[in-house]
C-alpha cells in the first residue's frame, strides 16, 4: 500500500510543481474541470460497478448507508465545533472579522 500512496503523492506533487511553474493564476483553464469531470464520472461509475457486483456489499447496502450517514454527520459536527472553538479563541466575530479590524 505505501507504494500506491507514494504514487498518489508523487502525482499530486508533480501537479503542484507543473502548476506553479507553467501555469498562470489569472488564466482560466477550462480543460481542467472538463477532464476532471470525465475522470470523476468514469471513476464513480466503476466504483458503482464494483459495489453492485459484490453480493456481500449489496446485501448490506442499507446498513452501509446508515453507517455512512452517521459517520458523515459526526464528522461535520466535530469539525464545525472545533472550528467554532478556534474562532472564539483567536477572537474573530461571527463573520470572521477581528473586532478591532
Amino acid at each position: 500500500m505505501p507504494y500506491t500512496l507514494l504514487l498518489y503523492l508523487a502525482l499530486m506533487g508533480l501537479g503542484i510543481f507543473v502548476g506553479s511553474k507553467k501555469m498562470s493564476d489569472q488564466k482560466e483553464y477550462t480543460w481542467i474541470p472538463k477532464i476532471q469531470y470525465i475522470a470523476v464520472v468514469v471513476l464513480i461509475t466503476a466504483l458503482g460497478i464494483q459495489i453492485g457486483s459484490d453480493d456481500k456489499v449489496v446485501s448490506s447496502l442499507k446498513e452501509i448507508g446508515v453507517s455512512a450517514f452517521v459517520i458523515s454527520i459526526f464528522s461535520m459536527a466535530g469539525s464545525v465545533i472545533c472550528v467554532h472553538l478556534v474562532r472564539k479563541w483567536i477572537g474573530l466575530n461571527k463573520e470572521g472579522v477581528r473586532e478591532d479590524e
Binding site: Y8, L11, M12, G13, L14, G15, I16, F17, V18, G19, S20, K21, M23, S24, D25, Y29, I32, I35, Q36, A39
Partner: peptide, 10 residues
C-alpha cells in the same frame, strides 16, 4: 490527483 495538484500549484 494530477489535476488537483495543477490547480493548487497555479
Amino acid at each position: 490527483l494530477f489535476l488537483v495538484g495543477l490547480d493548487i500549484g497555479r
